[in-house]
Design a protein around this nucleic acid. Sequence first.
DNA 1: GTCTATATTCCGATAGAC
DNA 2: GTCTATCGGAATATAGAC
Lengths: 183, 183
Amino acid sequence: MSTREEIIQLGDHLIREKGFNAFSFYDISKRLKIKNASVHYHFPTKSDLGQSILKNQTGKLEELIERTKQMDPVKKLNEFLSIYNKIKSEGRVCLVGSLATDLNTVDAKMQKDLKAFAARTLEWVTHILEEGRQQNVFSFTTSARTKALLIITNMLAALQLSRLTGEKDFYTIRQTILKELKA
Amino acid sequence: MSTREEIIQLGDHLIREKGFNAFSFYDISKRLKIKNASVHYHFPTKSDLGQSILKNQTGKLEELIERTKQMDPVKKLNEFLSIYNKIKSEGRVCLVGSLATDLNTVDAKMQKDLKAFAARTLEWVTHILEEGRQQNVFSFTTSARTKALLIITNMLAALQLSRLTGEKDFYTIRQTILKELKA
DNA sequence: GTCTATATTCCGATAGAC
DNA sequence: GTCTATCGGAATATAGAC
């Protein structure tokens, strides 16, 4: 992995571990055993780094959407929920949740990229649910978009709340979502 | 309101507007037209202020629980959900969500107070749901605690996500929770 | 592309006068 | 309880050598 890619990955981890305003370029330079100035060579400003992290995650999301295109809706939803399981296993929170709380402290470019990432995620989950309902494997009474909002908010906040009330609450929430969706 | 109380309220607003690590004692001194040193007189460290903010919110929660003790479960739940409406109208997020993402950057005392606040909230909502089910005004298939987890995560993350996907999504989520709970 | 060195700003915190 | 003044440290960022 190139230095640039390593910085992006590490920055991503730090945002989801400590928050955007709590990590510094020094945290990154220390871990990668390079100097502060070298990080600035790749990303002149912290916002540049933030934007690249968001673009990277958006790209990963598009890859996942493409890779799962031929799967059935149940598998697709499992792939989506697995994202949160991975994050939980690392003790972190998700990018959208972390940056949404910091929204008023980042510049317009990062805000735009973040909104695009959230919108694309919502669009994908909505599509999965719609497809699942048509194939009679999912059952719910609201619009697909509203159900997607409910599931995403459950998972996003499950990562955060279970840090406080106990890690097993995360898995309780995850399982209940699947149970209630079954046709 | 005493200076001390004003600092607590302003600090609370700033945490939910920008995050704990993004606001400074200067933000507070500027707004209250006092000096940095005066804020430190009331709260020697930032953690002291954070703890007082959490204690204050916990006290307010206990007051609300006490004040609504004689109400029926539907009204109690409405009182709970109204907390989030107030926060949404201010464009902020909730204390639990904001501080949960910053958990790894605050000291053990703040972590403990935050966990106590989250636990008490969960306990109260669980009680409301249990009572509502017994009186046949609420219907749900999980345990009351699990349903409370689902509702709290929906509302907590609705504040955050609707900053990105559109404010009306907050109200969609709120309404759907009530609709699905109706017996 | 990475380094040394440094500029600048900001932040949390404290000493001591009033 | 509030002030002036200041310390020490950390953060973002840049200039210029290698």
